[in-house]
């Protein structure tokens, strides 16, 4: 079991190091504080959205609404936080509450999360469009200052991701609560027989997912110049891919927080990597797909060796 977990984290890490190494060789100027901040500038919101997805996947559900949800949080921040902070905070708290309620209803009525969150993605997309029908907006200066802070030696996005991975590792893999969370994905009946409420646990996971989704939106808002209602719509599929790339499985409560953050970093870097090796713009999406396929194929091979 220990080797299994090690492999799960090791492989995405190796992929990430290989990508970073190749970029360093191709463009040595990236091997600096400034170069690294540039390469990893958008890693934090993607990592936070991936974590949000991971909480939901840990309890055998899936969230197809996270991209629209993060977009909603972002446009809310750039539209209201500076001028009417009360409205912004109210909307964001309301979003978390609604997301939690959706999780509870999915469990109570045994509805397929893939369809309900699909419907919710329309809902959040509509909300985002109502808040910001046209691109624009402005994040408060203090928020921009925080997310673009210059930390000594290691750029802030990388530092924040390491801290995030460590904290989540402690919460999910090392604590009693984390075992119960993952156990719900592994064996729902056992959790129920132990006298715990599965509905309560799933609501908690959707609450955490909603919280991290809002965090992702807030950080994204600080990084960008202007936002539109579609700004994070590709986060839905990106976050699912990152969780799986990081060693997570759709069923069985098997997730790895460190792996998920590394998976998010790998996918973020893949885009930069492709522009460095001069892949024509037409083929960049395709090459990103190819990187995803290769990384997952490697994972399949190592897993077969383990068994």
């Amino acid at each position: 079991m220990i080797t299994l977990l090690q492999y799960r984290v090791l492989l995405p890490l190796v992929t990430l190091i290989a990508l970073t190494g190749t970029i360093f060789i191709l463009q040595p100027r990236t091997m600096s504080y400034f170069g690294l901040s540039l390469l990893f500038s958008f890693i934090l919101p993607i990592a936070l959205a991936t974590v949000a997805q991971m909480f939901v996947i840990a309890v055998n559900e899936i969230d197809l609404s996270i991209g629209a949800y993060v977009s909603f949080a972002t446009v809310t921040v750039v539209t209201y936080l500076d001028t009417d902070p009360a409205i912004a905070v109210g909307l964001l708290l309301g979003a978390i509450a609604l997301h939690t309620a959706v999780g509870a209803l999915i469990q109570l009525f045994q509805m397929p999360s893939i369809v309900i969150t699909l419907g919710m993605s329309f809902f959040w997309g509509g909300c985002a469009l109502m808040v910001r029908p046209l691109p624009g907006g402005h994040a408060p200066d203090w928020l921009t200052a925080i997310v673009k802070v210059k930390t000594p030696f290691v750029p802030f996005p990388i530092l924040a991701c390491v801290v995030l991975a460590l904290l989540l590792h402690l919460l999910l893999m090392r604590s009693a609560v984390g075992t119960i969370f993952r156990g719900t994905g592994g064996n729902e009946r056992a959790i129920r027989n132990a006298g715990l409420s599965v509905t309560g646990i799933k609501s908690a996971m959707f609450f955490l997912s909603g919280l991290f989704g809002v965090l992702s939106g807030v950080v994204l808002a600080g990084l960008i110049v202007s936002a539109d209602a579609d700004i994070a719509s590709n986060y839905t599929l990106l976050s699912i891919a990152a969780v799986i790339l990081g060693g997570g499985l759709f069923v069985g409560g098997i997730v790895s927080p460190t792996g998920a953050v590394i998976g998010a970093a790998t996918l973020t870097l893949a885009a930069s990597f492709l522009s460095f090796i001069n892949v024509p713009a037409d083929w960049q999406t395709g090459a990103q797909g190819a990187i995803l396929i290769i990384a997952l194929a490697l994972r399949g091979i190592t897993e077969r060796y383990e068994h």
Partner: peptide, 15 residues
Amino acid sequence: LKIPPIIATLASSFV
């Protein structure tokens, strides 16, 4: 590759 269909078809859609 034993990839879940949701990820496999996502990757192939990129290509």
